[in-house]
Simulated scan of single mutants.
Amino acid sequence: MATTVLTLVGSLRNGSTNRQLAEATALNAPDGVEVTLFAGLENIPFYNEDQDIEGQVPEAARELRAAAGAADALLLVSPEYNGTMPAVLKNAIDWLSRPMGAGAVFGKPAAVIGTAYGQFGGVWAQDEARKAVGIAGATVLEDLKLSIPGSLVRFAETHPKDDAEVVGQVTEILEGIRAAAESN
C-alpha cells in the first residue's frame, strides 16, 4: 500500500515556482508514494472559532481536514512573503490544528520545502511553517529540508520537474517522508 502525502502549496499564483516545485514533487514520487496537491486553499475562510462548530464548519475547511485526515503525511511547499510564510498556508495549518490535540495532522509526519527569489531560498518562511505545523501536532521531520534560492532565475526557462538536481532532492524528501510514515 502506498504512503499518501498531502501537499499544501502556500502560493496561489498559477505560475508560482513553488506550485511548480510541488508539481515536480508529485511527478517524481518514488514507487510506494502517492502525492496529492490540495486545490482550494484560497476558498478557506480565515480561521474563526465561532465557525468551527460541528455542522457549521465551512465546506472548504471540511474538505481540507478530510484530505489531511486521509493522508499518511503532509508536505508544505512555502514561498517567503515578507520574511515569513504566506497567510493562506498559516490559515490552513490553523484549521488543521483543531480540535487541539486531535486535529487532522496530529502525530502525522510533516516536511517543509520551498523556493524563493532571495539568496536563502525562503528558509525563514519554511522555519515558521515547521514551527506552526509542529505546534498543530504534526511530527516535523527536521532533517528533511529543501530551500532553493534564486527561483526566478533558476526556473526562468526550466520547470523544476526538468531540473535533475531538484528531481533528486524531492525524491529524497519523499523517501524520507515514506520512511517516517511507515515507522509511525
Rank of each mutant, 00 (worst) to 15 (best):
L74A: 04
V77G: 03
I173L: 15
D162Q: 13
N28I: 01
M85L: 15
G118L: 05
K131L: 15
K108V: 06
E59S: 12
A71V: 07
D31Q: 10
R178P: 08
E63W: 00
L21P: 04
G122V: 09
D127C: 00
A66S: 09
L64H: 04
V77A: 01
A129G: 03
A156R: 15
A156W: 03
T36H: 06
I135R: 15
G32N: 07
A164D: 15
V170R: 11
P45L: 01
P109M: 04
D31F: 00
S16Y: 11
T4R: 15
R98Y: 07
P149W: 09
G15W: 02
I93W: 07
V112G: 10
A164Y: 02
Q169L: 12
F120D: 07
A67I: 06
V123S: 12
P79H: 01
L75Q: 09
I113W: 04
D94T: 11
D127I: 08
E128L: 05
T171S: 10
N82D: 07
K145H: 05
N82F: 02
V133S: 09
S151G: 15
T158R: 15
K161Y: 00
D163Q: 10
G15H: 12
L146R: 02
L146T: 02
V5Q: 14
V9H: 13
D94A: 10
W124H: 14
D163V: 06
G15S: 09
R130N: 09
T4M: 06
N18M: 02
Q119G: 13
T171F: 01
G55P: 02
V33M: 03
A39H: 14
F106K: 15
P99H: 09
I113L: 09
N91C: 10
E42V: 03
V166C: 04
V105K: 03
A110M: 10
P86T: 11
A132M: 13
G137P: 07
V170W: 07
G69P: 05
A180W: 13
V33A: 01
P30H: 06
I135D: 07
A2R: 14
L174P: 11
L6Y: 13
A116T: 05
S11Y: 09
T25E: 05
E34N: 13
A24P: 10
R62N: 07
L152T: 14
L41E: 02
L96S: 06
A67N: 11
Q119C: 00
D72F: 06
I177T: 03
N48A: 05
A110E: 04
D127M: 12
R98N: 06
G107T: 04
F155E: 09
V133I: 15
Y47G: 01
L8P: 12
V133F: 07
P86V: 08
V170K: 10
S11T: 14
P30G: 05
H159V: 01
T17C: 00
D31W: 00
A71G: 08
G114M: 03
T84R: 09
E34A: 13
A22W: 03
A73G: 06
